[in-house]
Design a protein around this nucleic acid. Structure first.
Lengths: 167, 167
DNA sequence: ATAAACTTTCAATAATTATTGAAAGTTTAG
DNA sequence: CTAAACTTTCAATAATTATTGAAAGTTTAT
């Protein structure tokens, strides 16, 4: 496999994985492109490489910046803006996990808390609703806490310790 | 908050969270409904409660069965089929994690492996592609392995140990 | 065997989500 | 100040994904 083929394969695979971390295809592809680029890219570069429109590029870059995984770079002597993504996978994972937790998981945990706290009117169905949503709440909260802690550790420390623990 | 309101809130919230674990709205809502039901439900029951068509119900129940989180129940003396979902959250999480890993994460890891194994032609951009996809490969593999192991443990054991470790 | 009870399939349609492109907005150089 | 270089916005459109409903298929009771 040659460079170009490998590059295309990476971008399209990583792009389609976007759903897994809750972002759309264009966003994921832009991030991929930046991730393997050896230098900051301009909007022009990105449009050209991915064959997407200016508007699309602009909107998705903005979202990537909102997620905190892409930043504007000022290149001296250049008028236009350049972009780079976080290059360290560990740091990238940290940002993504933190954002997903904030945007999606925490709000759900809140609802589960509310629902599981309704007053027990003594009926079987109410008891079941309370019991099951409570179980889900506890699971979601534990998972969320764990994920955030794991992802905030030093890479080697956590991998080593966990692997040892789990093996 | 009364039972009905709490129930509706739970079903719609959990339903919209479907994307987080890679399933569609109807699928997630059917699963939610079964999850808090005190008895197995028929297709008729589900259609009625969620106001969705017979076809939609049938297709989504099938998918839930493919995921291994919903099973057919035979009710003696009844002609139609009844459905139940896994009621234990731990077991539910295990199934979901296992399926997602198999369907989405493993294939991506495979591609990352291929891409990161292209021959180094000595150019800077090839070196960067190899380096970055390799880092991503290692991260994805570690995360996948960890997730699967964690989710396959006894509930209390893992929660206690991990919490102690991470605190 | 056949009719009723029930489930599945799938082409048509609806709903949602992503993308374009051109106009409006902003910044900088001269 | 103003024209050129560049970015953002957003209504229109395209692409994708979900949903319906009725016909076809299957199972069971008589």
């Amino acid at each position: 496999m040659e460079y170009q083929e490998a590059k295309d394969k990476f971008i399209s695979t990583w792009g389609s994985l976007g759903t897994l971390w809750g972002i759309n295809k264009a966003m994921a592809q832009i991030q991929s492109l930046l991730f393997i680029s050896t230098k900051p890219l301009s909007m022009e570069d990105i449009m050209e490489e991915l064959k997407i429109s200016r508007g699309n590029t602009s909107m998705n870059l903005r979202q990537l910046m909102d997620w905190g995984i892409v930043t504007k770079e000022l290149v001296p002597g250049e008028r236009k803006e350049f972009f780079t993504t976080e290059k360290d996978v560990q740091e990238l994972a940290r940002h993504i996990a933190k954002e997903r937790s904030r945007r999606e998981i925490k709000p759900v945990i809140k609802v589960l808390k509310e629902v599981s706290s309704i007053k027990d009117d003594g009926t079987v169905k109410t008891k079941e609703l309370i019991k099951q949503t409570k179980a889900l709440h506890d699971l979601a909260e534990t998972a969320d806490t764990m994920m955030n802690k794991i992802v905030n550790q030093e890479h080697n420390w956590i991998t080593k310790s966990l692997m040892k623990l789990i093996k």
